[in-house]
Every structure is written in structure tokens, then in C-alpha cells.
Design a protein around this nucleic acid. Structure first.
Lengths: 101, 101
DNA sequence: CTCGTTGCTTTCCATGTCGGAAAGTCTGCC
DNA sequence: GGCAGACTTTCCGACATGGAAAGCAACGAG
């Protein structure tokens, strides 16, 4: 077994790599949960585009979408799953390896 | 002016980001020059694919292709230009920012 | 109860990018 | 002149992406 510094086995992940999704994961990795609108604004994409990317992360089992109706307003919050967090960390480790940190 | 730690202004670069090119740049950034065949093998792509990616890096002014006939063998060596090196560093800085190092 | 609005989702579509396969180019050797 | 080596370019078919617009569900207003 090849031990890796951070404890993560570097692994390139095509689902995470594309710019918009790398950003989404980066944002979600820093928090527990973030609202759809906040992510959309931070990433700078349209509703439809964010929705589509989140869907891909969901299908990969990396993200979770929680809908709630709070104060009679629809609130959709996003978060990374445990698996997603690991995949993200592994991908980042791989990027570091590739870019020769 | 927003100063950046490493002295590089983070800047996402779409020419560098795609996996194959990120790898190529990563390899070239670590050396002065590397031979075409060596890069091809490290990156794990075919001649044609490497050739096409290198061409894109060349057109962006990031890579240099030097052909020489040494010992009656064609030797094509690749290297990053100063601009390419800066772009790569800036892109890596941006990746770090996004992935929240 | 019906309508308009908010907040996403899904569909449609026009581009773009990618990689594999195959043909092409260039150079030196036989 | 013909052939091999080392890339290059061309020709696709397969996807991936984003913008625009139509869909939907849940309210609040009238």
C-alpha cells in the first residue's frame, strides 16, 4: 500500500474536475450545507446550469439535495455526502500530485 | 491591489485545465525540456492525441516544440515558455484557491 | 378558487471538445 | 527509389456544455 501524506489516495475524478463542479465541491467542502442560491451566485452560473451540475454530483453519490419549506419559502440546501467529500479530497490530492505541489 | 501569497495572481485557465494538458504542463513545469515520447508515455496518450494537445499549448503561447535530428534520429523536445510557466502557476494558484487549500 | 410568483427542474438545441483510426509529411538510411 | 521512424493532420462519431424556454410544485393575493 502506498501511503499518502494526507491519508488520501490520489485519484483523478472526472465528475469533479470540470470547472463548475470543482467550484461547487470546493464551496460545499468548506461548509456543512449551503443554499442553492448562494452556490449559484458564488459559482456564477444560471439556475438551470447549477441544477444540472448538482444533479450529476447527486447521481455520482457526491452531493445531497435537501428541500424544505421554511417560512413559506422554498429553501433548497446542498451538501456533500461522506463519499463526495472523500472523492473531492482524493481528487485534490491528485491535482496536487499532478501539479507538483 | 490584491496581493497573493505566492506572488501569482490566481487565474483559471481553460487551455491548461483539461486533464491531459494539466498533466503535460505539470511534467514540463518540473523540467527544462522533455522529449515528446517521454511526455506521451507519462501522460499515457497516443501520438496523435499528445500532438494535438501540444499544438493547443503552442498556439496559446505556452509551449515550445524543438525538433532536432540527433544521431540520425528525430528528437522532438517540449518545454514551457515563460508565459506558459506563469499561466500554469497562476492556474495552480487558482485551483488552490478553489479547492480551499 | 384562480392567478401570479418564487425557486428550481427538465427539455431542446446549437456548439465545442475529445480521442481513435488512418492517411500524410519529412528525414535519413539502404 | 523504397522503407522505416517520429510526429502531424484529417476525418469522424461520441459526448459534454450552456443558454433559452417550457414545466412544476408550493404559496399568497385577490
Amino acid at each position: 500500500m502506498t501511503a499518502t501524506p494526507a491519508g488520501t489516495t490520489p485519484q483523478f475524478d472526472a465528475v469533479i474536475h470540470p470547472p463548475p463542479r470543482l467550484q461547487i465541491c470546493g464551496l460545499l467542502a468548506a461548509v456543512d450545507t449551503m443554499e442553492f442560491a448562494a452556490v449559484r451566485d458564488q459559482v456564477g452560473v444560471s439556475d438551470s446550469v447549477l441544477s444540472k451540475h448538482v444533479k450529476q454530483l447527486e447521481e455520482a453519490g457526491y452531493a445531497r439535495v435537501q428541500k424544505a419549506t421554511i417560512a413559506s419559502r422554498q429553501r433548497t440546501s446542498l451538501s456533500l455526502t461522506k463519499v463526495g467529500r472523500r472523492a473531492f479530497d482524493a481528487h485534490v490530492a491528485e491535482l496536487r500530485r499532478i501539479t507538483g505541489v
